[in-house]
Simulated scan of single mutants.
Amino acid sequence: MRPGPAPLTDTERAAIEALSVLDVTTARPEPAPPQPETVPAYLADAGDHEALLDGFLDTHGEFEKWRTWSDETTHAIHESQTRRIELIHETVALETAWTIAAYETPVSDRIWALTATSATPAPVLQELLNHLANGEGWDTAIGSPVDEKKVTASTQPLSDAGWKHTVDGRWIRWTSPAGFAGVRFDAFTAQHPSQNLAIWAGPDPDRPTWTITASPHTPSSLLSDLSETLAHETGLRRPQTADTGPRTSLITSPPAMPTVAAGHATSRSR
């Protein structure tokens, strides 16, 4: 005889070993979620567009925030009432979410407008708002429309960055080296007075993941700023999983630009 517990049997030892293996398995930590990767600005995530507009309004008191009665749209109207930004909430990827427009007077027709779909990457929109915030890109004087010469000058940053320049009938195009984005200019401006330039990203311009469209009188300085962003800026993109691949919804032409109303909305908030 000896003091202490009886020796473990073979069955007891096997049970303890099995439980220890189970403990190790269940205690194994979950794999860390994949980290966002740095990509060219035109491939970045859309981010929070409402937060971008709120940040713009917080730092620019000359713009007043107006909400429609249904709260589906937010308007940011300059104190002169000749500069207006419209954001439509809860839109799908290829629907127009943003309209930026300039007027010669508060009651005149629109001089120029630029639109962006809701999937437009956050870095592209941020640079656009930064440009407008600096007082640039708000030309409200009626001048000659943007033509091929002006577009070529505005897109010089793309050419310098190695984007491919091609001419196909009425279309003049600049395409990123890997073919994931581009700028397309419609040389038949007179036949399409509402829009003649489109910026896109996706498999090809007829299957974009997002688009920005510009009317003929859009200031060339604004287009040049967008070109700089596309050519040199970067952003973050979350890695795609197997069941959340990139959307490639079909679109055969740039979306039409909605009109920003000349009058005030029915209610407002700061």
Rank of each mutant, 00 (worst) to 15 (best):
P3V: 12
P3I: 12
L8I: 04
L8F: 09
L8P: 05
T11V: 15
A15N: 03
E17G: 01
A18M: 06
L19G: 00
V21A: 13
D23H: 13
V24H: 11
V24C: 00
T25D: 09
A27V: 04
A27Q: 13
P29Q: 05
P29D: 10
P31I: 05
P34G: 07
E37S: 11
Y42K: 05
A44Y: 01
A44N: 04
G47C: 06
A51S: 11
L53Q: 04
D58Y: 00
E64A: 15
K65C: 09
R67H: 15
T68A: 07
W69F: 10
S70D: 15
T73A: 07
T74S: 12
H75K: 07
T82L: 02
L87R: 09
I88E: 13
V92Y: 11
E95W: 07
E95K: 10
W98Y: 10
W98D: 01
T99W: 01
T99S: 08
I100G: 01
A101H: 03
A101I: 09
A102Y: 01
A102K: 01
T105R: 11
V107K: 12
S108T: 07
S108P: 02
S108V: 07
S108I: 09
I111F: 02
I111S: 02
I111W: 00
A113W: 06
T115L: 00
T115H: 03
T117K: 03
A119M: 01
A119D: 10
A119K: 02
A119W: 05
T120E: 01
V124D: 04
V124G: 01
Q126H: 10
A141M: 09
K150G: 09
K150C: 01
Q156V: 09
S159F: 04
T166P: 04
T166I: 07
V167C: 12
V167Q: 15
D168E: 15
G169K: 08
G169M: 02
R173A: 07
T175M: 02
A178L: 13
G179K: 06
F185Y: 15
F185G: 08
A187L: 09
F188C: 00
Q191H: 12
H192T: 12
P193I: 10
N196V: 03
I199W: 05
W200A: 00
P203A: 14
P203F: 05
D206Y: 10
R207H: 13
P208R: 01
T209L: 06
I212P: 00
P216Q: 02
H217Q: 15
L222S: 09
L226I: 15
S227E: 03
T229Y: 02
A231V: 07
A231W: 04
H232Q: 10
R237G: 00
Q240W: 05
Q240C: 00
T244S: 14
M257Y: 02
T259D: 14
A262F: 11
G263F: 12
H264R: 15
S269E: 15
